Simulated assay, not measured.
Amino acid sequence: MEALLVSTGLVAIAEIGDKTQLLAILLAARFRKPLPIILGILVATIANHALAALLGVTAGGFLQGQWMRWVLGAAFIAFAAWALIPDKFEDDEAPKDRAGVFLTTLVAFFFVEMGDKTQVATVALGAKFQSVYWVAAGTTLGMMLANVPAVLLGEAAATRIPLKYVRWAAAGCFATIGLWILIFG
Results as ranks from 00 to 15, higher is better:
A124T: 07
L163W: 05
I183W: 03
T45W: 01
A127V: 10
I13K: 00
A170K: 02
L141D: 00
L55V: 11
D87W: 08
I38C: 05
V135Q: 02
W168V: 11
I183Q: 01
M1L: 10
I25M: 07
D97P: 05
Q66G: 00
V148Y: 00
D18M: 13
F31T: 08
W67C: 00
A127C: 08
T176K: 09
T104M: 07
L103K: 11
K164H: 05
V101C: 14
E113S: 15
F76W: 12
T139P: 00
W134D: 13
T45A: 12
L35D: 02
E113R: 15
V151H: 03
F31W: 11
A156W: 13
R160V: 07
A74R: 07
F174E: 03
G126N: 03
L103R: 12
V166W: 07
G172A: 08
A121H: 04
V151F: 06
Y133A: 15
V135I: 09
K164C: 02
V11H: 08
I16V: 13
A24L: 01
I177F: 09
F89C: 03
F129Q: 12
D91F: 00
Q64C: 01
A175G: 04
T45K: 05
A3M: 14
A83K: 03
V107T: 15
Q64W: 03
F111Q: 03
A29V: 14
L23G: 13
I41G: 02
A78L: 11
K117R: 14
L4E: 12
L10T: 10
W168K: 07
D97F: 13
M144T: 08
A146I: 03
A50C: 15
F31E: 10
F111M: 10
M143D: 00
L23M: 15
L55G: 07
E2G: 05
Y133K: 14
D116L: 04
V112G: 03
W180S: 09
R32D: 06
R69E: 00
K19W: 08
F76G: 11
T58M: 06
I177M: 15
I25V: 14
R69H: 01
R167G: 05
H49C: 09
D116S: 04
A94Q: 11
G17W: 09
L42I: 10
A59D: 00
F174I: 01
G115M: 06
D116F: 01
P36R: 11
